[in-house]
């Protein structure tokens, strides 16, 4: 089954065309990477798919549900991790996980199993009892990733998941994402770090100036452009 189907998506901010008719599909259980430079339109695409921005044109279907018609149902099966996300500073880490789990769990039992999963992902030990305002950037990002994945969303939309993190934290987060896909979720992620996307993704789409330049498996794209990595693929695709 297709997890996500994007057809001819367009979006403008005044005279600026952020998305110029992009189309791509993601299969269930896949990690799909949207890669491109800053300002390419990645975040706009992710925000539209996450139901928080409207689109000017095109169609989007998420697990068979049409965006614009079934938004509330869609929000129950997706989770979105924005690039510059934060958590409520007055809440403790565990309090934040409990608060967010409260929107998805149908019963207290389910809620506590979501929170247990969140605690496992965050791996912050006793610091989960501290207020989020005392967390480092890496700890905040981990608690936010835990929030995004703990309820096992059918589609996790992650915008620059390792943004601003050091190497160790980035590796840890990449491993968590890979592990959760094995457990059955589908991931759409965006990054301008092409090496990271190459490591994580089953398939990628190269986006620039609101247009998709190429879509395919990293190895196929590298072969097509005679490149050693996705960065070289991107340069080749831009020519």
């Amino acid at each position: 089954m297709l997890a996500l189907e994007v057809k001819n998506l367009t979006k403008s901010y005044g005279s600026l065309k952020a998305l110029d008719g992009i189309s791509f599909e993601i299969n269930e259980g896949e990690i799909f990477g949207l890669i491109g430079p800053n300002g390419a339109g990645k975040t706009t695409a992710l925000r539209i798919i996450s139901t928080i921005l409207s689109r000017d044109g095109g169609d989007i279907n998420i697990f068979g549900m049409a965006l614009g018609k079934d938004d509330e149902k869609i929000r129950e099966i997706i989770s979105y991790l924005p690039e510059e996300a934060g958590a409520y500073k007055n809440l403790t880490g565990i309090g934040y996980l409990n608060f967010m789990a409260g929107f998805y769990a149908k019963s207290d039992g389910v809620k506590s199993s979501f929170v247990d999963t969140g605690v496992e992902i965050a791996d912050l030990g006793d610091r989960l009892k501290s207020k989020v305002s005392t967390y480092s950037k890496g700890m905040t990002r981990k608690i936010l990733l835990a929030r995004s994945l703990m309820m096992m969303p059918k589609l996790a939309i992650l915008d620059e998941p390792t943004s601003g993190l050091d190497v160790l934290n980035s590796i840890e987060i990449r491993n968590i994402i890979k592990d959760f896909v094995k457990r059955g979720i589908t991931v759409l992620l965006s990054s301008h770090n092409m090496l990271e996307v190459e490591f994580l993704s089953d398939r990628v789409a190269l986006i620039d100036k609101g247009k998709i330049l190429e879509t395919g498996k990293p190895d196929e794209l590298k072969k097509k452009f005679g490149a050693r990595n996705l960065e070289e693929v991107f340069i080749g695709a831009m020519r």
Binding site: S50, I78, Y80
Partner: peptide
Amino acid sequence: QNKTLETLLTVPIK
């Protein structure tokens, strides 16, 4: 300011 609004807008609540 705390960058929590974007996340809040994607949770399943009207």
